[in-house]
Design a protein around this nucleic acid. Structure first.
Lengths: 168, 168
DNA sequence: TTGGAATGTCAACAAGGCTGACATAACATT
DNA sequence: AATGTTATGTCAGCCTTGTTGACATTCCAA
């Protein structure tokens, strides 16, 4: 589909984008996101957690010792909303909040052994599907997939995404 | 599709997929979906509607005269959940529910002029971002994007997606 | 000492999922 | 004609996860 094709006469790589084609892309995003979250959701249900808990676990694991404020901006929710989720995870012993060394107002967040266990389980379930999709589509498709997703992000979110890109 | 690349020495098209690469893809999906819904969300807020209303409007527009049951399975929610949303849209005169001709138990759903107006507004906002992302990434990337998304769907959802593919 | 930043907490609310139960109406079958 | 099934709507209640607003505490920094 769409490799240059009959509609590119100039050097500019102009895409021939009908509303119909865009609509297909929109629907694909909608349906694919459902698949994307389906497997973790099933696991979370067993534990009595929701998607918000998964996201918290993911980004705490991603950035050991991150602060609440950091997590807030990454997740794009209010502190009250995050706090409720975090409180549950701390009470259940999946997350530990240590008082900051340099700034003692801050809380540095860490996963406990138990927290790492659940995170691994969720991540692996999600990776299995992702891996299958990548394999089915092939390496070129994967590169394109990532390019389009990145271009779809809000500018400030893309910053966040890149700052996470190479871990820390 | 997917002609090898540097990592394929065998006939099998083996991708070199590290957990790190998969994680980047997972995070890209998360952040991109936020961008994907951001523009319509802002419009919906002005009208006092939510994302659920957008989805209903989209698929009713997509398939004029579809039944409640059809919409239910497409959206993947319960009838109670959909009914609440639908009731609001009907009361506000955006959606019309006509008694079925052949089977009078069914309700065929249509957008009114007013409903089409909002749908167009939402769709155009979403298309603007999609179009920009497609342009930025290029036609090959777009093809890959769609391939990976499709591979990520649940099998039964992929059926639904395809049945919608060529219009009604 | 005082201002402001970071965090936590309480309360209230809303959207939008869910389940269960029940009511109609209409079609289908016996 | 009676019965069963299907499509839909509706009521009630519950959950998660988002929101705002208000206020307390802690503690860094000027």
């Amino acid at each position: 589909m769409a490799q240059g094709g009959p509609n590119t006469s100039s050097g500019e790589n102009l895409l021939f984008l009908t509303d119909e084609q865009l609509r297909k892309g929109i629907e694909a995003m909608f349906f694919a996101y459902r698949g994307f979250t389906a497997d973790p959701d099933r696991i979370l249900e067993e534990y009595g957690y929701g998607r918000a808990h998964h996201r918290a676990l993911h980004f705490i694991n991603r950035s050991h010792g991150t602060t609440v404020n950091n997590l807030l901006t990454t997740l794009g929710v209010t502190k009250q909303s995050l706090n409720r989720v975090l409180r549950g995870l701390i009470e259940d012993g999946l997350v530990e909040a240590r008082v900051g060394r340099t700034d003692r107002r801050e809380r540095n967040l860490f996963l406990t052994e138990k927290g790492q266990e659940l995170e691994r389980k969720l991540a692996e379930a999600q990776r299995v599907r992702m891996r299958a999709a990548y394999r089915a589509a092939g390496p070129q498709a994967v590169a394109g997939f990532r390019q389009v997703l990145e271009a779809m992000m809000d500018d400030d979110i893309r910053q966040t995404y890149h700052s996470l890109k190479d871990g820390r």
